[in-house]
Amino acid sequence: MRGTGREKYVGPLLPARPVASTFADMFSIPALNPALAPAIQHKIDHKTKPLGALGQLEGLARQICLIQQTLTPTLHQPHLLVFAADHGIAREGVSKYPPEVTYQMVLNFVQNGAAINVFCRQHGITLKILDAGVAGSFADYPTVIDQKIAPGTRSFLHEPAMTAQECTRALEAGAAVVREVAATGCNVLGCGEMGIGNTSAATLLMHRFTGLPLAECLGRGTGLDDAQLRHKAAVLAAAAETHAHLTEPLDILAACGGFELVQMAGAMLQAAALGMVVLVDGFIATAALLAAARLHPEVLAYCVFCHQSDEAGHARLLAHLGAWPLLQLGLRLGEGTGCALAYPLLLAAVGFLTEMASFESAGVSQAVTPPAV
């Protein structure tokens, strides 16, 4: 008989590895070479359309070409990784749902019952579920990839959410799974998450890394009412004060993050290092990227921002990063759903660039510049 999975986790945690001598040793992300940009723009501008008529798709096509350093980009074996973990801060009453929902939702993913399962099936995206630090065992569910650092973080209201070594191991774990995915031929990767309490972690990371007032980063998460939101604000203000002395990005990430956020950050950094197109989901995924970018700013050039979440702080976070999201649908689900919904737009961008006729090939006259008066 299968247990509930909520028993105290006694299985092997992700083994400790030597900590990199410096974090820079873990990733090498090249800046995008702009030499091809004029040729890319010429190809875009000479398609059978008015200049700029495909709007944001043109910028998306240009970015994919620069990432892949080619005039004929392709997208292969798209993958979406959903990282799940529990948060000690959830015990402070910052979420509308109890912590056990994290475990229950992972089972829903395994049973193909979640929105992300539906959207990945619709668009031919390979979905992988990863236990980054859930307070329960998935030994009976072999499709869940075990990357558990610990069965949940500590409450960052009182102490760092994780140790420095746990943070580094989580970054390495996120990177390792991307290397495995890349070996299948994947060159476009999205990350999603599940973790009750993780909007609180994302809010605190946004506050610390952007310098914006906490009130401008705060949102209702899973649907808090006004009284619950005031309580969440008070808890996070106290937590911010607890860790106000920290200045180094890795220290802030360890103190205020979650195992799924840190593994997402490592996955994004590794994907960029391998020259992949990185799909960025909503508020929590963007907060993970923000942390990654504080460690390696070059990662941002590889990122496609899939949507603007309905979570209050996301629009400000996107503005801080200078990001232009593809979709604005009022989503606030997480799971990587925005990545899956936006992926067809990447296919469209690549498709028009590689398949649409040029003025020359179609024998269509181009626009004429009026004579000077």
Score class of each variant (00 low, 15 high):
residue 14 L to C: 00
residue 99 P to S: 15
residue 118 V to L: 15
residue 3 G to S: 14
residue 301 A to K: 11
residue 61 A to Q: 11
residue 178 V to W: 08
residue 87 H to G: 05
residue 5 G to F: 08
residue 269 L to R: 12
residue 315 A to P: 08
residue 28 S to H: 13
residue 360 E to L: 14
residue 367 A to T: 00
residue 54 L to I: 06
residue 309 S to H: 05
residue 122 Q to R: 12
residue 17 R to M: 08
residue 310 D to W: 02
residue 340 A to P: 04
residue 167 C to V: 04
residue 357 A to W: 15
residue 148 K to D: 02
residue 122 Q to E: 02
residue 8 K to E: 10
residue 238 A to F: 01
residue 78 P to R: 04
residue 358 S to L: 12
residue 373 V to Q: 06
residue 143 T to S: 11
residue 286 T to W: 10
residue 339 C to H: 07
residue 272 A to S: 13
residue 49 K to Y: 11
residue 166 E to N: 00
residue 205 L to Y: 07
residue 373 V to M: 03
residue 36 L to I: 14
residue 60 L to P: 14
residue 56 Q to T: 14
residue 276 M to T: 01
residue 70 T to K: 01
residue 145 I to M: 07
residue 233 A to C: 00
residue 367 A to N: 08
residue 299 V to P: 01
residue 220 R to M: 10
residue 262 V to N: 01
residue 203 T to I: 02
residue 223 G to H: 12
residue 133 G to L: 08
residue 11 G to H: 11
residue 266 G to W: 13
residue 31 A to I: 10
residue 143 T to I: 02
residue 161 A to P: 14
residue 6 R to G: 04
residue 302 Y to L: 06
residue 81 L to D: 07
residue 255 A to R: 15
residue 169 R to H: 13
residue 228 Q to M: 13
residue 71 L to T: 00
residue 22 T to Q: 04
residue 13 L to A: 09
residue 140 D to N: 12
residue 321 L to R: 02
residue 19 V to C: 00
residue 229 L to A: 14
residue 142 P to H: 12
residue 235 V to D: 08
residue 348 A to M: 12
residue 103 Y to M: 08
residue 362 A to N: 12
residue 370 P to T: 08
residue 214 L to E: 10
residue 282 G to Q: 05
residue 330 G to E: 05
residue 51 L to I: 14
residue 168 T to Q: 15
residue 28 S to D: 04
residue 38 P to H: 03
residue 313 G to D: 05
residue 229 L to G: 05
residue 272 A to D: 14
residue 109 F to H: 10
residue 241 E to Q: 13
residue 233 A to Y: 07
residue 351 G to S: 14
residue 304 V to C: 04
residue 342 A to T: 09
residue 163 T to A: 05
residue 142 P to N: 01
residue 360 E to N: 13
residue 16 A to M: 06
residue 231 H to G: 03
residue 118 V to W: 03
residue 287 A to N: 13
residue 123 H to A: 09
residue 221 G to I: 12
residue 126 T to A: 14
residue 263 Q to A: 09
residue 335 E to N: 10
residue 291 A to P: 04
residue 44 I to P: 08
residue 37 A to H: 07
residue 104 Q to M: 08
residue 5 G to R: 00
